[in-house]
C-alpha cells in the first residue's frame, strides 16, 4: 500500500479552466504527481461513481473541487467526497462564490428553462419538450437525469470547506503553495483563502499612478477605447475591480492591459464585493447632480455582470426571486 497521500480532483458547474490550471503547473505537476497518488480526476482519467463510493471514509487526504453547484448530481458527489476526504479545497471562483455560472441566479429556473428549451433563437421545439428527471425509453428502460435546482450555489453553501484557492482559475503559484502547505502539514486556520488578504492595488504595478481623487466623469468598457498601458486603469474610467478584489494573482490582467474583473473575490473583511466597489466608486464620481450621475453610470450597462461577475450566489443579493 502506497504511503503517499491520496488526492482527488472533481468538477461541478465549471468551464474546465480550473482543470487546465492544474495542467498549467507544467513541470511542477510532476513533483505533485511524484508526491501523491491521484485517486480521482474525471477530466483526465476514467473513474466511476462506484469507485468513489468504494473508498473508505477519510481515505483521501485532500480533494480539490472546482465548479459551482446547480444539480442534484453535483450535490450528491460533493457530499460523498466530503465524507471521503480529510480536506476539501474549494478550487476557483465558481466553487468559491458561484463564478460565471452563478450569474444564472439573475433569472429564475423557469426563465432559464423556458429560454433554453423554447425561446432561444435556433431552438426548434414546437412540442415544448423539457428534460424530465425520470422517463422510460422505447425499450421500457428507466432513464434518470439530475434535478436542476432553483439556484446556483457555491461549494461551501452545500458542504463544509476547509480552504479556498481563489481565481478564475487559480494561478499555478497559488496552487503549488496550497499543495505544499497541505503536504508539509503547515496549515493555516480552517476557512482560510490561500492568497494574501489585501486588495489587488497593493501589488498592482500601476498603483503609484492612481490619483487621490479619481473624480470620474465617465465609465468606458475596454472594447470601446484604448487603455493607456502605464496609468491606473480605474483612473482612466475603465471599471477595475482591483480595489475590492483580493490580491495574489500578481495583477495578471492589469499586466495584460485589462482591468481586474474581480475573480479572486473580496478580502476576508468584506461580505459583498460588488456592494463594496459600488460604495467606493459612488464617492469617486465627479458629477454631483442626478442627471450627470446617471450619464456617468450609463457607462456600466450591466452592473450585476460587472460588480458580481464571479460572486452573485455568495453575495448578499444571492439570487432573483420571482413572485
Amino acid at each position: 500500500m502506497s504511503a503517499k497521500p491520496k488526492v482527488g480532483f472533481y468538477w461541478c458547474a465549471s468551464c474546465g479552466g480550473c482543470e487546465e490550471a492544474v495542467v498549467d503547473l507544467a513541470e511542477g505537476v510532476l513533483d505533485v504527481v511524484a508526491a501523491v497518488d491521484i485517486v480521482l480526476w474525471p477530466v483526465a482519467m476514467d473513474f466511476k461513481r462506484s469507485d468513489v463510493e468504494g473508498m473508505a471514509d477519510k481515505s483521501m487526504t485532500v480533494c480539490f473541487i472546482n465548479g459551482a453547484v446547480r444539480t442534484s448530481e453535483q450535490e450528491e458527489m460533493v457530499r460523498m467526497l466530503r465524507k471521503k476526504a480529510q480536506f476539501v479545497i474549494s478550487f476557483g471562483s465558481c466553487a468559491n462564490s458561484g463564478g460565471i455560472p452563478g450569474l444564472a441566479n439573475q433569472f429564475s429556473k423557469e426563465t432559464i428553462l423556458k429560454f433554453v428549451y423554447e425561446d432561444c433563437p435556433g431552438v426548434d421545439n414546437s412540442a415544448r419538450t423539457r428534460p424530465q428527471t425520470r422517463m422510460k425509453d422505447e425499450g421500457d428502460r428507466s432513464l434518470h437525469l439530475p434535478v436542476f435546482r432553483d439556484m446556483v450555489r457555491s461549494l461551501d453553501q452545500v458542504i463544509d470547506v476547509d480552504y479556498y484557492l481563489p481565481g478564475c482559475p487559480p494561478t499555478p503559484k497559488l496552487i503549488m503553495g496550497g499543495v505544499q502547505a497541505l503536504l508539509s502539514g503547515k496549515l493555516p486556520a480552517k476557512g482560510t483563502v490561500l492568497s494574501p488578504d489585501v486588495a489587488l492595488c497593493d501589488e498592482c504595478p500601476r498603483k503609484d499612478s492612481k490619483p487621490t481623487d479619481l473624480a470620474l466623469t465617465e465609465f468606458k468598457r475596454p472594447h470601446l477605447a484604448p487603455i493607456d498601458p502605464e496609468k491606473c486603469i480605474l483612473a482612466q474610467g475603465f471599471l477595475c475591480m482591483g480595489p475590492a478584489t483580493r490580491s495574489g494573482c500578481e495583477a495578471l490582467c492589469v499586466k495584460g492591459n485589462m482591468p481586474c474583473s474581480g475573480c479572486f473575490g473580496p478580502t476576508s473583511k468584506v461580505r459583498d464585493q460588488g456592494a463594496k466597489l459600488v460604495s467606493c466608486l459612488a464617492g469617486s464620481i465627479a458629477a454631483k447632480e442626478t442627471p450627470e450621475i446617471d450619464k456617468v453610470l450609463s457607462g456600466i450597462p450591466d452592473p450585476v455582470g460587472s460588480f458580481y461577475r464571479y460572486g452573485l450566489p455568495k453575495s448578499m443579493l444571492k439570487r432573483r426571486i420571482d413572485n
Binding site: D197, V198, A199, L200, C201, D202, K207, K210, P211, T212, D213, L214, G242, P243, S247, T267, K269, C280, G283, S284
Partner: peptide, 28 residues
C-alpha cells in the same frame, strides 16, 4: 485603518469631510 490590510488604493482619502485621512507615501 488596519495597516496590514490596506492596499493603498486611496479611495477613502478624498471622501473624508473632516480631512482626517492622509496617504502615507512612504508606506503606501
Amino acid at each position: 485603518v488596519v495597516e496590514e490590510e490596506c492596499s493603498g488604493c486611496k479611495s477613502c482619502v478624498p471622501l473624508c469631510p473632516y480631512s482626517a485621512i492622509t496617504f502615507d507615501e512612504a508606506k503606501k
